Simulated assay, not measured.
Amino acid sequence: MKKHRHFIIHKPWGMISQFVNPAKRQKKLLGELYDFPEGTMAIGRLDVASEGLLFLTTDGKVSQEIRSSKFEKEYYVQVDGNITQEAVEQLKKGVEIGLNGKKYLTKPGKAFLIEDPKFALRSQKIRDERHGSTSWVSIIIREGKFRQVRKMTAAVGYPTLRLIRVRIGEIKLDNLEVGEVKEVHHFM
């Protein structure tokens, strides 16, 4: 029986969460970080402008399970402006976003204000103080629709400037350096 392997990565900003570049864009691919075994797949991909915890596995059953609503996914989100407690409450209850040309109400989750989480600066500067204030919020969801967190913050009036996934279930980003790959021997 084939022994499956699992990995976690601190995906940097500007990298595609894939091994193949379908659009032939001038972006880095996951395979440039590590020599992954054949059949490795990224689970719950992060878009090019997002950073943080990415889980990879050679086991399709694990992939399906993590993408399900069984596991929480936590994101630290830097938003434009000083987000209000009222907006945070809306994020918790669920907000209406556009999805595939239709309206979609996100499932209730968790959200709370956080202090600047002190992540390393991005290679691409977001902006500086001249453009107004920013704030950080933690958003915890059990679903993962296309660009969902970005759409959620925009729906409550605070567009996302920086998005970092910090947790999937019990697996945390913790002290993983940007671009670092670590093999894990259990997935949850």
Rank of each mutant, 00 (worst) to 15 (best):
G94E: 00
V178K: 07
M188T: 10
E86Y: 12
R150D: 13
F7I: 03
M188N: 06
E143H: 03
I8H: 04
K182W: 01
D174W: 04
I171K: 11
V20L: 14
S63D: 05
R147G: 05
I8P: 02
F187Q: 02
E143K: 06
R167I: 02
S123F: 14
P108D: 04
K27N: 13
S135V: 06
A154T: 13
G31H: 11
F55K: 00
S123T: 13
F36M: 10
H185Y: 04
T153N: 11
F146A: 02
A120S: 13
M188Q: 09
E177K: 15
I9F: 00
A154E: 14
H6Y: 14
K107D: 08
I141W: 04
L105F: 00
V48A: 12
E32G: 06
R45N: 07
K110Q: 06
R167C: 00
A155R: 01
T134I: 07
I168K: 05
R165M: 07
F71E: 02
L121H: 14
K11A: 14
R122D: 13
Y34W: 14
K125D: 05
K103H: 15
V181C: 08
P159K: 06
G132L: 02
F7N: 00
K61H: 11
K110L: 01
E72Q: 10
I66K: 03
S68N: 08
I141V: 13
T84G: 12
I16E: 09
E96H: 10
E96W: 10
V181Y: 02
V181S: 11
W13S: 08
E96D: 06
K107A: 06
V166P: 04
G52E: 00
F146S: 12
P37R: 10
I43K: 00
G39M: 01
A49F: 09
F112L: 04
K28A: 10
G179L: 10
K172C: 08
D35S: 08
H131C: 04
K92F: 02
I171D: 13
K92N: 07
E115V: 11
V184Y: 00
V181Q: 09
P159G: 09
K125E: 05
D59C: 09
T84S: 14
R150T: 15
N21S: 06
N21M: 03
F19D: 01
K182F: 00
M1T: 12
I83A: 03
L176A: 02
H185M: 07
S123H: 15
V156L: 07
L29F: 05
E32D: 11
G31W: 09
I168Q: 03
K73A: 10
L29I: 12
K102N: 10
I83C: 10
P108Q: 07
S135K: 15
K172R: 07
E32V: 05
V77C: 06
N21L: 01
A49K: 12
K24V: 12
S138Y: 04
I140T: 12
T106C: 13
P12G: 07
L46D: 03
G157R: 15
P108I: 04
E65M: 14
T40R: 07
Q26W: 01
F19V: 11
G81H: 15
Q124L: 15
